[in-house]
């Protein structure tokens, strides 16, 4: 049965946007945890640990995100496990996003000159104190803009989770479009909703970047 596109549909889409935001937030936290572990592994004095982190990143980045989602959802289900789509989605995004954030953060720390570590060491700071008081604060300034950029990508990529049955805003849009047969109107609203979420972040990132550049 085909019905018209009503203000109610916008409310439903807004409701679904909550799940998009929640999914992005969960995926971001998961990615941050994985990224932190990877960046720390890259600082290890043990070659095997560093190597493991490199292999992880190469492996993850060589496989599309959508394939990770299918593997974790349909693949694991085939093995006889009952997979919650939310768990599969957040896990998939975290595996994938963690590799990206790990590289960004490692790069940020790597861009701090070795003389900064040495200056800390020469003052009697332990390695962890050098990290905490000298290296990390400087790396954060460098890493914040690309990290926000990553979050924006992540928000948009959560639309992929519609393929494993999560009713986020893109999936809700598909359903509304099918019911109203007004894809142009529906997807324009969907697009506007994504934009409303991403645009302020992009602006924030740009203003931070300007601020840090001015401080240098």
């Amino acid at each position: 049965m085909i019905r018209g596109f009503s203000p109610n549909d916008i409310l439903f889409l807004l409701g679904a946007l909550r799940w998009t935001a929640l999914l992005a937030a969960g995926a971001f936290v998961g990615s941050a945890v994985v990224g932190l572990v990877l960046a720390t592994m890259r600082l290890s004095r043990f070659r095997a640990v560093r190597w493991l982190a490199i292999v992880y990143v190469q492996l993850v980045q060589g496989i599309p995100l959508l394939v990770w989602l299918f593997l974790l959802y349909f693949g694991v289900a085939m093995l006889g496990f009952n997979v919650d789509p939310w768990l599969a989605a957040i896990l998939g995004f975290s595996i994938y996003g963690g590799a990206f954030l790990g590289e960004v953060w490692r790069g940020a720390m790597g861009s701090i000159e070795v003389t900064q570590w040495e200056a800390g060491a020469a003052l009697g700071l332990s390695i962890s104190q050098q990290l905490r008081h000298v290296i990390v604060p400087q790396s954060v300034q460098i890493a914040i803009p690309p990290t926000i950029g990553f979050l924006v990508q992540l928000i948009k990529n959560t639309s992929l989770a519609s393929t494993i049955g999560i009713l986020e805003v893109t999936r809700e849009g598909q359903l509304t479009s099918a019911a109203t047969y007004q894809p142009m109107t529906v997807y324009l609203v969907v697009a506007a909703l994504y934009f409303a979420l991403c645009f302020p972040l992009t602006q924030w990132s740009r203003s931070l970047e300007r601020k840090f550049n001015a401080g240098r």
Partner: peptide, 29 residues
């Protein structure tokens, strides 16, 4: 770490901490 409290070193390229004020540079350690 104990040794280095007794041995100060000053480098050619200063190596101040750019994210800290002069006071914090001096008082961090």
């Amino acid at each position: 770490r104990v040794l280095r409290q007794n041995v100060g070193i000053v480098f050619q390229s200063f190596n101040l901490f750019p994210h800290l004020s002069v006071c914090d540079n001096i008082t961090l350690a």
